[in-house]
């Protein structure tokens, strides 16, 4: 939305000093506030989106406690913990990258963004290669695709449906977030972010924290509660 001043004598200055706000805003601060409110509203919609999975989890857990206990035992809490750690660290690095933008610490801004993006990839890699892949191969699949020879309870397919839908939607958010962070990192390499202009880093950070937060709820519900 922002436009770039290419004409004034300051055109040799870093890019972030030349970013001006979009013409329908009165000031840069107003644009920054607007983007932040917009992102908070968007995060509200994300919470409500995931609320559907949490409600489904609560209801089916109440209906079929045995199936959920049995299903939960199939998940390896160690991989879940590792992924939790990865997301928590990435939340720190993206928060740090916002601070770096504010203090014009360009190297650590770029480093932290890139590190966060690779955390996102690592999370997805663990999820696909070490969790979904082996479980799918063993027949632990959702609904009628379920093909595991010795289920604890006949409703166990429903547990896997909730598991795959909730973590799958979360994973989609991780991947989208990772892609956005790569874009923000690319822009940071062009010098677009600095103390006067860091809206993009800030709202991406907000989004990434939400992705982290949702996992913080999914992890104990799915992996730890027996």
């Amino acid at each position: 939305m922002s436009t770039i001043d290419t004409e004034s004598p300051s055109a040799k200055q870093p890019l972030w000093t030349r970013m001006t706000h979009a013409h329908h805003f009165r000031s840069h601060d107003e644009e920054f506030d607007a983007c932040k409110i917009g992102m908070w509203l968007f995060l509200t919609t994300e919470v409500l989106l995931f609320s559907g999975f949490f409600v489904a989890y609560a209801i089916f857990r109440a209906m079929y406690p045995e199936a959920f206990r049995g299903g939960s035992h199939h998940l390896d809490w160690r991989w879940g913990s590792l992924n939790t750690a990865i997301l928590l660290i990435s939340s720190f690095t993206i928060a740090y990258s916002i601070r770096c933008a504010q203090t014009n610490n360009q190297f650590w801004l770029k480093f932290n963004l890139l590190f966060t993006a690779f955390c996102g990839l690592a999370f997805a890699g663990i999820k696909f290669a070490l969790e979904y892949g082996p479980k799918w191969a063993q027949g632990k699949r959702p609904g009628i695709l379920y093909d595991y020879p010795n289920p604890v309870n006949e409703s166990e397919p429903l547990w896997w449906s909730v598991y795959y839908m909730a973590t799958g939607t979360h994973l989609a958010h991780v991947l989208i977030g990772t892609a956005v962070i790569f874009i923000i990192w690319y822009r940071a390499t062009k010098g677009m972010y600095g103390p006067k202009h860091y809206t993009g880093v800030e709202i991406t950070g907000l989004y990434w924290h939400l992705v982290d937060l949702i996992w913080i709820f999914l992890f104990p519900l799915l992996y730890l509660i027996h």
Binding site: A67, P142, G143, L145, E154, P157, S161
Partner: peptide, 10 residues
Amino acid sequence: HIGIFDPNLG
């Protein structure tokens, strides 16, 4: 047919 809304699958 993930079964969330299907009574046949619980």
